[in-house]
Amino acid sequence: MIQASVIIPAYNAEQYIQATIASAMQQKGCDLEIIVVDDRSTDNTAAIVAEIARSDARVSLLALPRNGGPSVARNAGIGAARGTWIALLDADDAFMPGRLAALIALGEVKNADMVADNLLLVDQVDGSELPMLAPGALTAPCPIDLREFIARNISAPEAPRTNYGFLKPLMRRDFLTRHGLRYDENVRFAEDFALYVACLRAGARWWLHPEPFYRYLVRPDSLTQIQTTGDLDALRRRQRALLAEAQATGDGPLAALLRQHLRTVDRCYYYRGFTDELKARRPQRALGYLFASTDSTLLVAQEGARQLPLILRKALQGGYNKGGNKKAAQ
């Protein structure tokens, strides 16, 4: 019986894909399959994967006929999977030794539908490594419900990189199938967040392990760092719909958390729109974002202050990298 299906969506990932697959192949203590979904790469990604697959029967290449984006690639992998657990792995990340065995064991003991671990954030620029959840922040496995998940997606100055939307949980395949849950294929940003919310709303039992078994490469050209106003507006609409539902059902604590999270998204939305229009030399449109609401000016100023250290660092490094891809950036 296949216990885990490791799904690796990949697009132009020739620089990383061999090491990423190796980290999955080296997992011990569980039977697994590794499905690499090539989203119509234009480099040698597919050829590298095909060569690995010829020497290890656990590895297979699923080549998509056209580029569809991260959600399409992940759904294709889920559709082809045979394992009890679905384990997503981004094409430039890696599993630490023993990750799958540890998480599957926790999931079975807790009868969980989802089980995740802490992330080891690896900065591509300076090479630093640190866990997303600081040592001592979580001392034992704990459950996550919808309120906790939303709360941990609200940025805080003391923990700017702590965001549960970045977690990479193992998910029971039969839970996803039973509830008809898949990635939204119209979404290219925060697609993980949307799926996790849908799972929790469907009653998923989610447990979090405190150890960082997942190496998450933080790149300056990541989709998680570069969002369009359209991406952010789609997230705003989803959150507003969820807020309306929480208010209708009388869930005051959840509604309060959603309002806080929505304000964070609004801050990013107005700032992105304002700065993009300034860069495009469209001052009237920029002012439209700046004065779009009673608090948009304040939100733009707050996000500007938050972004300043990153802007200065990029300037010192010679400017912005306009190429590359990250996190199935198809």
Results as ranks from 00 to 15, higher is better:
2 I>D: 05
14 E>A: 15
17 I>N: 05
18 Q>L: 08
19 A>D: 15
21 I>G: 05
23 S>A: 10
28 K>P: 09
30 C>W: 02
31 D>T: 12
33 E>G: 08
35 I>E: 04
36 V>E: 00
45 T>N: 02
45 T>Y: 02
46 A>D: 07
48 I>K: 12
50 A>M: 06
51 E>Q: 15
52 I>Y: 07
54 R>S: 13
56 D>Y: 09
58 R>A: 11
62 L>M: 09
62 L>D: 03
63 A>Q: 14
67 N>S: 14
67 N>F: 01
69 G>V: 04
71 S>I: 00
82 R>N: 11
82 R>H: 12
84 T>G: 09
87 A>D: 04
87 A>N: 02
89 L>Q: 01
89 L>G: 05
94 A>E: 09
97 P>Q: 10
101 A>E: 14
107 G>R: 00
109 V>Y: 04
116 A>L: 07
123 D>R: 05
124 Q>D: 10
125 V>Q: 12
125 V>D: 14
129 E>P: 00
130 L>I: 08
131 P>E: 01
134 A>G: 11
137 A>V: 06
140 A>H: 14
140 A>Y: 08
142 C>P: 01
143 P>W: 07
145 D>P: 00
146 L>H: 02
146 L>N: 03
147 R>K: 13
149 F>R: 03
156 A>N: 12
162 T>N: 03
168 K>Y: 07
170 L>A: 06
174 D>A: 11
175 F>W: 05
176 L>N: 04
176 L>I: 13
176 L>T: 06
181 L>T: 07
182 R>H: 12
188 R>M: 13
189 F>T: 07
191 E>F: 06
192 D>W: 04
193 F>N: 02
194 A>M: 04
195 L>E: 00
197 V>F: 04
200 L>T: 02
200 L>W: 02
203 G>H: 07
203 G>F: 06
205 R>P: 01
206 W>L: 01
211 E>Y: 13
212 P>L: 08
213 F>C: 00
216 Y>P: 07
217 L>I: 05
218 V>T: 03
222 S>Q: 00
223 L>T: 13
224 T>P: 03
224 T>K: 03
225 Q>M: 13
234 A>S: 14
234 A>G: 13
235 L>Q: 11
237 R>C: 03
237 R>A: 13
240 R>K: 11
241 A>Q: 11
242 L>A: 15
244 A>Q: 15
245 E>N: 07
246 A>T: 02
248 A>G: 15
249 T>F: 10
257 L>N: 04
260 Q>M: 12
260 Q>P: 01
265 V>K: 06
267 R>C: 13
268 C>I: 08
272 R>D: 00
274 F>W: 14
275 T>C: 11
276 D>F: 07
277 E>Y: 01
281 R>F: 15
283 P>F: 04
283 P>M: 09
284 Q>P: 00
286 A>C: 11
286 A>K: 04
286 A>G: 10
287 L>W: 09
288 G>H: 01
291 F>I: 02
291 F>C: 13
293 S>L: 11
295 D>I: 05
298 L>E: 15
299 L>G: 05
299 L>N: 01
301 A>W: 12
304 G>P: 08
305 A>T: 12
306 R>F: 14
306 R>V: 12
307 Q>V: 09
307 Q>G: 01
309 P>V: 07
310 L>N: 12
312 L>R: 14
315 A>K: 10
323 G>T: 10
326 K>R: 12
327 K>M: 11
327 K>E: 10
330 Q>M: 06
